[in-house]
Design a protein around this nucleic acid. Structure first.
Length: 199
DNA sequence: CCGCGGATCTTCT
DNA sequence: GAAGATCCGCGGA
């Protein structure tokens, strides 16, 4: 594969669609983070959509608050929050400005900067365990609250597309680890990939 | 491989 | 004041 960090950045129009379309289209795309001289990159292999209406599991369901403000803003930005008081989770904002909707990045296949990722995940053995969970990938990439609202079309955190990459085969399941709206088919993953969370 | 429980803290009720 | 969009280590099969 070509250098992932040099691939084309996805434009804002990529994110300015309905949330499910964005969640599906993100599979196979590349997250690139430049931090402290390191360039880290991973291929998105698992996502979940959190909708703006009728989705009780979505943080935006309770309305626009200090925490969910960015979800109601323009697309192509990052929504980062702390889960269970310990783990950061990374989401990308979808839909046009004013309409809530975001996509949780649940798993990455590490492509580049693996040594830098391992430095933050010292206990991991296999490469595929470095970022195969929403809390694991933020730790591996060094993502935290400083990235709240970050613009994904420019800056140290970007999402890119390898040209001429064929679209992956997508599998659909209910979402993981939620208590409400739990049966909606809003989890998407690349069918043949090993670096995805369990069911 | 599978199930269990503890850690830890922000946000909204 | 309780509930989380989780992870890890432990013990057992």
């Amino acid at each position: 594969m070509a250098d992932p960090a040099a691939a084309n950045i996805l434009p804002r129009s990529f994110y300015a669609r309905d949330t499910v379309a964005v969640a599906r289209a993100l599979l196979g795309k590349i997250v690139v983070h430049r931090l402290g001289g390191a360039v880290m990159a991973g291929r998105i292999v698992e996502t979940e959509a959190y909708l703006g209406s009728g989705d009780r599991a979505a943080h935006s369901f309770a309305g626009c608050t200090a925490r969910t403000r960015v979800i109601f803003g323009p697309p192509g930005h990052a929504y980062v929050y702390l889960a269970y008081g310990m783990h950061h989770c990374l989401n990308f904002i979808a839909e046009r400005a004013g309409v809530p909707g975001c996509v949780l990045i649940r798993a990455l296949e590490p492509l580049q900067g693996i040594e830098a990722m391992r430095a933050r995940r010292p206990r991991v053995r296999r490469d595929r365990e470095i970022a195969n969970g929403p809390g694991k990938l933020t730790l591996a990439l060094g993502i935290d609250k400083r990235h709240y609202g970050a613009d994904l079309t420019r800056g140290p955190l970007t999402v890119r597309e390898i040209p001429a990459e064929p679209p992956p085969e997508i599998r659909v399941t209910p979402r993981i680890g939620i208590a409400q709206s739990k049966d909606l088919p809003l989890r998407f993953l690349i069918a043949d990939n090993e670096a995805v969370g369990k069911r």
